[in-house]
């Protein structure tokens, strides 16, 4: 059966978040939600505003994944990081341009957009968010 994730409209709808980290911030409690929301999942308010997250944050923790899920078989092992963005929002995503020895808990990371996977059937490239140690200035 064709996985949901290889259907072009599925990823197309996600563009604001997986390309730019755009979502909805609750005007009452300040909680950030990826993509569109009509009700704040934390406080229940219905006043939410569109916002784009800042690109930077810090690394809370990471893991080296050896057992891939479908579509990621050719890129194992890969790193997955738990990051806290500058506004306090927690996200998880793959880490790129680094090896485990380059990582330190608490280090500054930045969001980048990379090729996440290529769909096997349609050969469609799925681009989206990954994180990497901040390229130092």
């Amino acid at each position: 059966m064709k996985p949901l994730t290889s259907r072009p409209p599925f990823y197309w709808r996600l563009r604001p978040f997986i390309y730019r980290l755009e979502g909805s911030r609750c005007s009452v409690c300040g909680h950030f939600h990826p993509l569109n929301r009509v009700v704040c999942r934390r406080c229940g308010s219905r006043t939410l505003e569109r916002e784009r997250l800042n690109n930077a944050g810090r690394l809370v923790n990471y893991t080296v994944v050896h057992q891939a899920q479908e579509g990621f078989e050719k890129t194992t092992p890969y790193l997955v990081g738990w990051v806290e963005m500058d506004d306090g929002t927690n996200l998880v995503g793959q880490l790129t341009d680094c090896d485990p020895q380059d990582l330190k808990v608490g280090m500054t990371i930045e969001m980048v957009v990379r090729k996440l996977r290529v769909d096997g059937d349609s050969n469609l490239i799925v681009y989206g968010v990954k994180f990497r140690p901040l390229v130092q200035r």
């Binding site: 996600l14 994944v65 738990w82 998880v92 995503g93 793959q94 990954k130």
Partner: peptide, 17 residues
């Protein structure tokens, strides 16, 4: 799926974290 599965993060990876 929209922001875990699609980011190439599996439940296994989350459990590891």
């Amino acid at each position: 799926q929209e922001y875990i599965g699609s980011f190439g993060v599996s439940q296994l990876a989350e459990a590891a974290l």
